[in-house]
C-alpha cells in the first residue's frame, strides 16, 4: 500500500494524521503501530474515518517533535500487511411508540408512514464510521437517503441510553444517557458500552451493523437479562 499521509496540528496539544487511501483499515493499522511504539509520548488517540489524532503533553514533548517521530516510524513500516476482517453485529431494536420519540416528525418530513420508515431502516446495512464524541456513541453510515432528514433545531436535553436515532445520512446509537439533536426512532436493550469491560465498547470502526425488530415484551426480557 502506498503511504499517503498528511499532517496537521491541533494547537500545541495534538497531531492529526490524515490518510488519503486505505480508509479505516489504514487508521487501525497505524494506530496499532503507533500506540505500541509511542506509548510513553502519546496520552490518547482519537480515530475518525480518515484520520488519527495523537494527543501529547506539550510540557513533555512538542507536537513538532512528536510529528518527526511519527514520520520516521511510519516511513520504516510496511502498511497494508493485514487487513482487519470487519465483524458483523446484529442489534435488536424496539420501535414501540414510547421509544420512537421522533418517528412522527420523521414521518412528516419524509412523507413515509412509520411502518415504511421501519422497513427501510431494517433493510439497511450500516458501517461503524466513528466511535466518540461522548463515551460509546456509535456513528453508523449507510442510512437510506429516503430517511435523510436534518438534526433537530433544538437538541433534546436528555436522550436515554440505548436510543437509536437518525440525522442526515447517518444513524447513531446513544450508549449512554446524554443530550443530543438526532431524531430518535427506536431503542435497543443491548448495552454496547460497558465501562467495566476492556475495551469498554465492543464495536470497532469499520464493523458492519444490521438491526432486527423486537416487540416491547422481547425488549423487556432482554433488558432484564442484561441486568
Amino acid at each position: 500500500m502506498r503511504k499517503n499521509f498528511s499532517y496537521e496540528y491541533l494547537g500545541d496539544r495534538a497531531l492529526i494524521i490524515s490518510v488519503t487511501q486505505g480508509g479505516i483499515n489504514n487508521i487501525h493499522e497505524i494506530y496499532s503501530i503507533l500506540s505500541k511504539k509511542l506509548e510513553d509520548l502519546v496520552l490518547d488517540f482519537v480515530k475518525t474515518p480518515e484520520s488519527l489524532a495523537l494527543y501529547n503533553d506539550p510540557y513533555k514533548v512538542s507536537v513538532k517533535d512528536l510529528s518527526k517521530r511519527v514520520k520516521s516510524l511510519l516511513e520504516s513500516e510496511t502498511l497494508g500487511k493485514k487487513e482487519r476482517i470487519a465483524k458483523t453485529w446484529k442489534i435488536p431494536v424496539c420501535y414501540d411508540g414510547s421509544f420512537g420519540l421522533d418517528i412522527k416528525h420523521v414521518s412528516k418530513k419524509t412523507n413515509l408512514s412509520p411502518k415504511e420508515i421501519i422497513d427501510i431502516y431494517l433493510k439497511g446495512i450500516y458501517k461503524v464510521n466513528m466511535i466518540g464524541f461522548l463515551p460509546g456513541f456509535v456513528y453508523l453510515s449507510g442510512l437510506d437517503k429516503k430517511l435523510s432528514i436534518p438534526r433537530k433545531k433544538t437538541p433534546r436535553k436528555e436522550i436515554s441510553e440505548g436510543s437509536i436515532a437518525i440525522a442526515n445520512r447517518q444513524t447513531g446509537i446513544y450508549n449512554i444517557k446524554s443530550p443530543g439533536g438526532w431524531n430518535v426512532i427506536g431503542k435497543t436493550p443491548t448495552s454496547l458500552f460497558n465501562k467495566n469491560s476492556n475495551p469498554p465498547i465492543r464495536l470497532k470502526e469499520g464493523d458492519i451493523v444490521k438491526f432486527y425488530e423486537i416487540n416491547i415484551q422481547e425488549f423487556n426480557n432482554l433488558k432484564n437479562n442484561e441486568k
Binding site: 494506530y31 490518547d44 488517540f45 466511535i131 466518540g132 461522548l134 463515551p135 456513541f137 465498547i201
Partner: peptide, 11 residues
C-alpha cells in the same frame, strides 16, 4: 488519565 479518548471517554 491515558488512552481513554479512543472510546469517546474524556481525559
Amino acid at each position: 488519565r491515558k488512552n481513554s479518548r479512543v472510546y469517546g471517554i474524556p481525559r
